[in-house]
Design a protein around this nucleic acid. Sequence first.
DNA 1: TTTTTTTACGCAAACGTTCCCGGGAAGAAA
DNA 2: TTTCTTCCCGGGAACGTTTGCGTAAAAAAA
Lengths: 343, 343
Amino acid sequence: MKFESITIKDIGKALGISTSTVSRALRGSHEISAETKKQVLEYAEKVNYRPNPIALSLKERKSRSIGVVVCEIANNFFSQAINGIESIAYNRGYHVIISQSHESYKREVVNVQHLASRSVDGLLVSISSETTNLAHFINLHEKGLPIVFFDRVTNEIITHKVIADNYKAAYDATVHLINNGYKNIAHITFAPFLSITQERLAGYKDALVKNGLAYNERLVKYCTYGGMIAEEIEAALSNLFTSTEKPDAIIAAGDRITTCCLTAIKNSGLHIPHDIAIVGFTNSNIPELFAPTLSTIRLPAFEMGQVAIELLINLIESKRPVTEFETKVLQTEFVIRESSVKV
Amino acid sequence: MKFESITIKDIGKALGISTSTVSRALRGSHEISAETKKQVLEYAEKVNYRPNPIALSLKERKSRSIGVVVCEIANNFFSQAINGIESIAYNRGYHVIISQSHESYKREVVNVQHLASRSVDGLLVSISSETTNLAHFINLHEKGLPIVFFDRVTNEIITHKVIADNYKAAYDATVHLINNGYKNIAHITFAPFLSITQERLAGYKDALVKNGLAYNERLVKYCTYGGMIAEEIEAALSNLFTSTEKPDAIIAAGDRITTCCLTAIKNSGLHIPHDIAIVGFTNSNIPELFAPTLSTIRLPAFEMGQVAIELLINLIESKRPVTEFETKVLQTEFVIRESSVKV
DNA sequence: TTTTTTTACGCAAACGTTCCCGGGAAGAAA
DNA sequence: TTTCTTCCCGGGAACGTTTGCGTAAAAAAA
């Protein structure tokens, strides 16, 4: 099955003029007579002519499309971020091609290569939790492909970055729990190499220390697969609860981790927040529907997406090589609900 | 900023052979000597040659990309469906370009036109709730662009369709509520023109009638914007609760509608399931975390995506025009939890 | 040796577009 | 009348590939 469409050549033939004249008329060149222009424009309108973007891409060596690399879109944070990305990209005439790594290094590499070979003009990336080797990004970046990282970023590549203030978020959440009388605060988080993990861990640590509590690394559990695998989180939890230093509070670092924790706690018969408190990093829009209602740290996902795509498009459209890069830090939103306040 | 890459011309020049020879060597043509092939292959590998897909698209008049038109990806059903779509598309060498209508007819039209002009090879569509005029699809379809509808389908276009068994789902849910002693069962659903609305409504009606209850149209509320606008749902609810025929149960037709109903009921101080029961069509993966746990009808989103993309790719790759179309009906999953069972 | 076949490769066109360059016609300046 | 501008427009190359056709050299057959 094929899908024929009208070309500039067809118009030229129909009107008895050359393709170059048609092209120029369409672009409103001054060196085409008003009469010819009118004729071409009218005919093009009549036959509903649409320039072939593929031919244009070939000629201009750019595709007006940008690639997005995230772990998965079935995740509140990323789907909201993609909404932000799309809202801007569309207006600026760019297409968005989304690919999911599912937290797998291998798939990330494949996806990135695929996107690059599809000639995307730039990449918007949130690194997978399995990724420690960044060669696939570095290669492309060195060849001149504009890349902007968001949320899960890296210091190994000097470019624009957009992150949330994870340090402050974790700090505030920890202080909040301490102020509510919790003393054994666990932190269930992503893979240790991820920037978000490190930022949050730092905030968590500092809050503990500044409030006279010791940092206990046995209370920190890393989920290498970022919660894609429920067993991983359950293992972390059972490990916590069987240890001698049982936590009385948890800070969960992600959407899945949070819901998994809630389920596990519920199944274990513990009472929230009496036996254990929980604060979750989640962009769920229904934290009030949980029982008890869930205290959350919400990332500015939509805005992060918007800022990231703005930066990327600026990079793409910049006439001269950009040498000054910035890291934008957006504020998170901390909403205290029942799950972290003892009654 | 631009991003140069290696072409077969470069390879030819480097090896002192023509581009056609390089092309043929790369494709493993039999009319190229083993020696030359080896040379070319090795060199291509060495410089990391990647064929330019844009040039290929131009030549073959297809882009190996397919467009997906949904309401929004920040929705469990659609993000799961997209996962299904991607899982297949990737393996078969297709790119997926996602666009969101946000339940707006205007945006749907713009998106579809945009996708078409980007030369997608086919379209996977779930119609927006505002859409009553299908001209934008009919046009493209008549020009030969393969389209497969899923979830929200239409009878105005003869092509493959993939839907859930909405009739049975609604029927079963209604019967379940009746069996649990509920008599005034309300149905809060999408726009009346949507196929899913009609299918569910039919199941709901038939279940009532077959169980000796009268169908009361005042208990059915339509949300034209499919729950994108919370006020719409709230209005429907307050309308229901202030009427003389107060419902004692609700069947909510979508993700957003369900959560919105839960919030509203919670705020109104009513007790679920004592004062009012609720069953929701939702693909949320945390219905157990709600209080009370939520009885749900889950659509086979992932499978629907998979089946739809399979059908679409078959259509695209079919040598001869396809005249036999099918409508696949997949089964839903009904899980009864606390919200619909009186204690 | 001559003729035929096979092998291995190059040329050029095509996909749809833009844009440089060149040139004819008409009008203006000499 | 001749020369110079100005105004319009067409030819053709280029972007990266594939592919039909042509052909020189080598191999096989005569």
